[in-house]
Design a protein around this nucleic acid. Structure first.
Lengths: 136, 136
DNA sequence: CTGGATCCCAAATGATACTG
DNA sequence: CAGTATCATTTGGGATCCAG
């Protein structure tokens, strides 16, 4: 950490502290974690039940083997999924949502419903914005 | 999806509707958009009311001018925020959530509540995972 | 004050080859 | 099958300078 004065942002005026910066950060952190390109897809897949590595790979389709591994490690590290190895030949590894992971499904699917309900409007807004850019 | 006499794989419990791969993509796209490092922070700030560029910059604190600009452009393109220019000197630009942006607050804050409730458990899981890695 | 343009570095992701 | 290791590429993001 650099020495010097760290700037403390002005406190929000009374009545405007519904969303503390603190909480914003927390949300930001969580979104930074599950908001990557793949985590949610994995979570939603596992939300339907236990899956093995190759099943997830096929189900998601476009994910590379490397990224699936990394994503699963990250989710496991966060305690959202569990990893069960069956040392057979060929080996088998099953992934499953933990209780914590299960509890995440609800807010995520809420966001999912929002996305499903509004992605038409978003797409339309994008087209509009881009047209203005090219035709303006 | 043609209903035949094939058995349907286990239904998710009520309230957790089936998660078609299609829908997963939609969610993934939306999360890819708002799940970046800054969008949510901006949205939550604007959730408290209209803000001008420099206010957002100060409030968020660690964001660079460049990223704030890019983030705002992205959100505007998605129709989540509106941009109002007042051609005074010095110029003034205010940002505000659109109706669409407002509607996003609810699912986002739901995720926020989840984050606030569970980030201790996540942190603990991470410590546990990392210990296993270094001491194992 | 707002924000575009440029340069540069770090992190994320993909492709491929290799291993138990 | 389920990874790991490595390399190449893409993307994210900060710093800085410049302009209306």
């Amino acid at each position: 950490m650099k020495p010097g004065r760290f700037s403390v942002p002005a406190f929000p005026p009374p009545g405007h502290e519904a969303l503390a910066p603190d909480r914003c950060r927390t949300v930001g952190n969580v979104l930074a974690r599950i908001g990557d390109k793949w985590s949610v897809l994995v979570i939603m897949q596992l939300g339907e039940g236990s899956r093995r590595f190759s099943e997830l790979r096929r189900a998601i389709g476009s994910i590379s083997q490397r990224m699936l591994t990394l994503t699963l490690r990250g989710l496991e590290r966060d305690g959202l999924i569990s990893r069960t190895i069956t040392p057979s030949i060929p080996p088998r590894v099953d992934y499953e949502l933990t209780e914590l992971g299960m509890s995440l499904r609800e807010p995520v699917t809420a966001l999912g419903r929002w996305a499903a309900s509004n992605h038409d409007r978003i797409a339309a807004a994008q087209v509009h914005f881009d047209r203005r850019d090219t035709t303006g």
